[in-house]
């Protein structure tokens, strides 16, 4: 799966990267990312996740070729 991160998350992760791990759900992905970067945990807990440009919930089942965006709280305007 391909992961894209934005805004303050780029302080912790590359802006996009591939993950080969066997992660079943978005919950698993979030736990994996937090394990990689424990300091990002508080921010990850505030994030929404999107697969192929549509928001999904934490129970969403990940497919091998999904492109997953990790979306921090908005601060536009």
């Amino acid at each position: 799966m391909k992961i894209k991160v934005f805004a303050a998350l780029k302080d912790y992760f590359d802006k996009d990267f591939l993950l080969e791990e066997n992660l079943k759900t978005i919950t698993d992905l979030k736990a994996h990312l937090a394990q990689q970067q424990p300091k990002a945990l508080a921010l990850l807990n505030l994030c929404r996740f999107a697969v192929d440009d549509e928001f999904v919930d934490l129970s969403h089942l990940i497919h091998e070729n999904d492109e997953i965006s990790v979306i921090p709280p908005s601060s536009g305007g």
């Binding site: 934005f6 805004a7 303050a8 999107a50 965006s69 921090p72 908005s74 601060s75 536009g76 305007g77």
Partner: peptide, 13 residues
């Protein structure tokens, strides 16, 4: 404007 500010994935630095 409210929905854009709260929901749309845009961030300011």
């Amino acid at each position: 404007i409210d929905r854009i500010k709260h929901e749309v994935p845009i961030w300011k630095c």
